[in-house]
Simulated scan of single mutants.
Amino acid sequence: MSGVIGDEVVRAARGWIGTPYLHQASVRGAGTDCLGLLRGVWREVLGAEPEAVPAYSRDWSEPQGDEALWRAARRHLHVTGQAAPGDVLLFRMREGAVAKHLGLAAEVGARPTFIHAYSGHAVVESPLSAPWARRIVARFAFPERS
């Protein structure tokens, strides 16, 4: 990702810090989940969302083992290798489970961090510690503006 759009993504994501966790929501300051955070940052940085998101349950994709979030990310984002600030990180929270947690790469000084929302917490910026880093299964960059 270019530094300029990456910086905009990080700045926008940090504006969501403190937003309460609310399943399926995407409203800065009112409520969001991890996908809602990504959607909200997309709207702030790039404009209209590229597709409507269908309703989803808390265990969505798990019973079928369907990597729906990964496929959606590949439709709208660019696969990248080493994450740069502003890139999207896709996490598998348990061995053998579908990947269904998202965060946005950032950094504090030289320390890697990521901004995310997860159940029981507000949007937070967490250190990208070894336990979190081990859960990353894919990295994506936002598309450039048209």
Rank of each mutant, 00 (worst) to 15 (best):
I17T: 14
T19Y: 12
H101G: 15
H23F: 10
P63Q: 04
H116Y: 02
E125M: 08
P63Y: 04
V88K: 01
G18P: 08
L90A: 08
R39N: 11
G103D: 06
V98I: 15
P127H: 05
R71D: 13
R75H: 12
S126H: 06
D59A: 12
A97C: 03
H23Q: 10
L22Y: 08
G15M: 03
L37A: 03
V10S: 00
M93C: 15
A130I: 06
G6K: 03
S129H: 04
W42H: 00
V124W: 03
G109H: 09
G29E: 08
W132G: 08
H101A: 13
I136K: 05
P54D: 06
E8C: 09
V10N: 00
P131D: 09
A105S: 11
S129C: 03
W70S: 13
E107Y: 07
L38E: 03
G86S: 11
S61I: 02
R111V: 15
E51D: 11
E125C: 10
A133V: 03
D7Y: 06
L77P: 00
R11Q: 15
L22S: 13
D66W: 07
L90P: 02
A105D: 00
A117G: 14
H76N: 09
L102F: 04
A117H: 10
P85W: 07
A99D: 07
G31S: 12
Q64A: 14
R92H: 10
A122T: 15
W60K: 08
A13E: 00
I17Y: 06
A110C: 07
R11P: 02
G29H: 07
V79K: 04
T32S: 15
I136Y: 02
K100Y: 12
W70E: 13
H76K: 02
E44N: 12
A30Y: 11
H76S: 05
R71K: 10
H23E: 13
H76P: 02
G81H: 05
W132K: 08
A25C: 12
A83I: 00
W16S: 14
L104G: 01
P20N: 08
V88S: 00
T113K: 02
G81A: 14
A52S: 08
A99N: 06
T80P: 01
P131M: 05
E95T: 15
G6S: 12
G109E: 10
L46Q: 05
E107W: 09
V41P: 02
P54R: 04
A52Q: 05
G96M: 09
L22F: 09
S129V: 07
S26G: 14
I17N: 08
T32K: 01
T32H: 02
R11I: 13
V79N: 04
A105N: 00
E107F: 08
E8S: 14
G120E: 13
S61N: 12
Y56D: 05
R39T: 09
D7S: 14
T113H: 12
G31D: 07
R134A: 15
E44I: 07
T19R: 13
G81C: 05
W60Y: 11
A68M: 06
G36T: 11
V88A: 10
V123P: 00
G15W: 01
T113C: 12
A55Q: 06
A106S: 15
D33F: 03
A52K: 05
L38Y: 02
S57I: 00
G18D: 12
V9S: 05
D59V: 12
E51C: 06
P20M: 08
P63D: 03
T113Q: 07
